[in-house]
Design a protein around this nucleic acid. Sequence first.
RNA 1: UCCUUCUUAGCUCAGCUGGUUAGAGCACAUGACUGUUAAUCAUGGGGUCCCUGGUUCGAGUCCAGGAGAGGGAGCCA
Length: 478
Amino acid sequence: MSKRTKISEILRNEATGYEVTVKGWVRTFRNNQFIALNDGSTNNNIQIVVDFENTPEATLKRITTGAAIGISGTVIASQGKGQKVEVKAKTLEIIGDSDPEKYPLQPKKHSLEFLREIAHLRFRTNTFGAVFRIRHSLAFAIHQFFNDRGFVYLHTPIITASDAEGAGEMFRVTTLDLNNIPRTETGEIDVKQDFFGKTTNLTVSGQLEGELAAMAFGEVYTFGPTFRAENSNTTRHLAEFWMIEPEMAFYDLDDNMDLAEALMKYVIGYTLTHNKEDIDFLTQRLLEEEKLKPQTERSEMNLLEKLQFCLGNNFERVTYTQAIDILRESNHNKKKKFQYLIDKWGADLQSEHERYLVEKHFKKPVILSDYPKEIKAFYMRQNDDGTTVRAMDILFPGIGEMVGGSQREERLDKLETRMKEMHIPTEELSWYLDTRRFGTCPHAGFGLGFERLVLFVTGMTNIRDVIPFPRTPKNAEF
RNA sequence: UCCUUCUUAGCUCAGCUGGUUAGAGCACAUGACUGUUAAUCAUGGGGUCCCUGGUUCGAGUCCAGGAGAGGGAGCCA
């Protein structure tokens, strides 16, 4: 068989009367005659019409759900109603059999939980086909966005020796024999004998390294895997996830917010034009799912409307202090409907509060800024009030924190003082402090959780369904 | 890690106050039909009722412990 044509191409141009070769995987085989074939180029299948009267019985029996087949034939206008064009098969080759008794996917609706257990096959379903094509588009659009603006894509290390970032529990990296750990005279693990001669971990953030490069290139971004050994079992946490971390010299917090908002809108807009079919499919899928819910729990907007709304409206920008006032004055708080009632300034917001602000009060993405310094990291720039820092979180409906960022403290004395207050070893991070010693400047950056972005754009609700092979506590399958 | 719900056929699920042979739809097999859209119709095979222990004449059902999964919380992206 010759070079194959992608199904997306045949369906897109709708032309007829020409010869093609298509290859893909059988979704269903109806009436001993009609194959719904999918090759992953689009969620839509192409209908193959088999001349069953002139095809060996043994071959027909091998056209089963999941089998890989190749067909050469003519693209013709379809006599049926479900599609405009179809391929009338001249030759049909079974490339890879699929035992229908053992193949777990059936032409029916499967639960997401079941598909998660067969993550190696779930790409072959409509839902996951759409999700992972969108995931690809979002990744591509992110690079496009930054490249268009002259940012340098920086690869920060995955193995790191600094454990001073305080961004959560880390995965230890070692080549020591765990059954026979070398000890020092005092009984501690002798890390000098380990591969790097010191304690090393998987990265929890590329931010500190990103800042170093920003002090040379002006604007950089990272996009890579990130690892957190937290024992989190939620629909929005993974032990291994992908994060985008831009870092920009000569930016203040407002510039930072502008960039983050522009990025989000650009990549969402990109998928709306390049993944229209997949988004339409997911929108439909969600609508059907919502039919099962009581009226009151249904969303006001469908997925497509939600994404369009997000593009057409500015994100609401409020300070932490304003947010506390809104929450405190809300009927929800007065009627004591919050599990944690808002009384005094300074407490960290619970996710019920964030959800109230985003989903009930503003009904759109919200950028919260200027948090109390006690609940934020050491590197954030201190405001003149002495109590808040130039931090910002972008909260999205249904997802919560999608972006966390800040203007960085560029003043060496202030930074060192804060590090000492928070017991961050300054000697170990001397290389980081060098940026403040040699040509320091105002700068800012943020971290965007890639899977959370994919969650929002696809309308999926569990983060394990938007990464091919999720790593979570007690689970590293595939 | 905490709270909570769940675990019955390949999948989705029913199984009442404990009762004798555990059901349905889909899938699968066989046959019929042959322009079907998750094709249809007929027939058929298919079960460690998550595991361990207990209560009872009798446990899918009740109790205890364990494992796994879902949802919520904390932590965060």
